[in-house]
Design a protein around this nucleic acid. Structure first.
Lengths: 179, 179
DNA sequence: GACTTTTGATACAGCTATGTCTAAAATGAT
DNA sequence: ATCATTTTAGACATAGCTGTATCAAAAGTC
């Protein structure tokens, strides 16, 4: 089995039960615990690798979006669309991120990513498509929150994956009120 | 120390580090581990008690809102306002809820609560203040997601507690776009 | 089929967390 | 101050998890 595939299963297992043991994760991956230890020297190593892997996937997804291209709203929609299929990585990252406190490289890459998103929101504000009376960070948070929630509902089967992006975009931009 | 106070500290400790040991929680509460065991016969007992306590607080907060009174939007704003000060309980519940799977009573009470919220949203739709083209459950999810995110930001110090309700309401109802 | 490599079950040692108990210390009541 | 009650530190036993090592079985290669 490929290391990437194991990482994927480990992430999915840990977001369901974040107390899952190495044995649990090995079972989920259909391999022996010894073999899991061959891929990751320790649980700590594994968690670090998962954090990095999840983050890298999101970074890459963001890069593929080419957020400088087109309008801010178009870029936002692209971001949402590419993050949806990796919602489990996103969810894992939300839960595990507090434990990345001492990883300076990851933290600085996070800041870079956040900086890009802030730039994008500010561009939307300049383009007069995003409100200027809300904090930039809160706009990003709102999108994050909706992504997270949509992923939960996809996992529950309440939302169809193909409806998610549109649903998030419309909720994000126009809210649930009739104003 | 009162049992309620210990429960509060346990919840706050566990949302920060959900792997916190009984020793960690006892330290946070300023009591001995033995004493903690006097309040809760086992870790399992404690987690069950915390789940129930968190849920009850939210139930009570919802009851105090008298959601049948006034317009749906007024009731929604009241809900958000009363849930904010107990955001840590809300956050704990979001994280711990998957582990309440076998608690039939809690699950049925959750359904009752959800039913009330659905009724409220439907009332808002009838009053023409909430959109009818979005799933009712998704409207509730959006509010939940924003509550959760606002609580995180209050904990970070990015949002002032007194701004939170207004921020959530405006984001929820009109979104972040200028439409 | 023969050989090599990989895998996994198993055993073991060490560690941590949990639950239980005891006796001393601390606290509260009078 | 005395007595009663509560709390705590520490000890202990146990279970579970982790990391490590061994060796037979399984899988892969030629």
């Amino acid at each position: 089995m490929e290391r990437d595939a194991i990482q994927d299963i480990a992430i999915k297992t840990l977001i369901t039960n974040n107390g899952a043991s190495m044995h649990d994760i090995a079972v989920a991956a259909g391999i022996g615990r010894t073999t899991l230890h061959r891929y990751f020297a320790s649980r700590d190593d594994m968690l670090r690798a998962l954090l990095l892997s999840a983050f890298q996937d999101i970074e890459q997804a963001m890069t593929e979006c080419q957020i400088e291209t087109g309008t801010a709203l178009e870029a936002l929609e692209r971001i949402i669309t590419v993050l949806m299929p990796i919602g489990h990585r996103f969810t894992f990252l939300l839960g595990a991120w507090p434990f990345a406190e001492d990883n300076k490289e990851l933290k600085s890459r996070e800041l870079r990513l956040l900086y890009q998103l802030e730039g994008l929101v500010q561009r939307g504000q300049k383009e007069k498509s995003l409100r200027t009376d809300l904090p930039v960070r809160w706009i990003i948070d709102t999108m994050t929150a909706l992504l997270f929630m949509a992923w939960q509902r996809i996992s529950d089967g309440y939302i169809a994956p193909r409806d998610a992006s549109k649903l998030i975009m419309t909720t994000l931009l126009t809210g649930v009120g009739t104003h």
